[in-house]
């Protein structure tokens, strides 16, 4: 699985992207965030308030309870502010 981080989520995690093997038992974006959160302080901080984090799966906006699989590209970021 490819994971990307943008804006302050990227700053807090300290990385822009990474490749991981999706662990057994992780079936949704929320579960993935919970799993990432325990990897270190930066990750815990990034995902401390999931109300402020948005997710895209395979480059489409998705809800936090959307299923994820090992072949997905998943991105975490704050609400968008373009325009």
């Amino acid at each position: 699985m490819k994971i990307l981080y943008f804006a302050w989520v990227r700053e807090k995690t300290g990385i822009a992207s990474e490749e991981i093997s999706l662990p057994d038992g992780i079936g949704t974006a929320t579960q993935l965030m919970d799993w990432l959160s325990v990897r270190g302080d930066g990750f815990a901080d990034a995902f401390a308030n999931t109300d402020t984090v948005r997710v895209a799966i395979n480059q489409e906006h998705a809800s936090l309870d959307h299923p994820v699989t090992d072949s997905d590209e998943v991105a975490f970021f704050p609400p968008v502010t373009g325009g």
Binding site: V80, G82, G83
Partner: peptide
């Protein structure tokens, strides 16, 4: 639509430092 759907994020920098624009 693009303001709430296109994945852009604005970082504003001033003399006091930089901060991400909130939606």
């Amino acid at each position: 639509w693009l303001k709430t759907k296109a994945p852009f994020w604005k970082l504003e920098a001033s003399e006091d430092g930089a901060s991400w624009v909130e939606a």
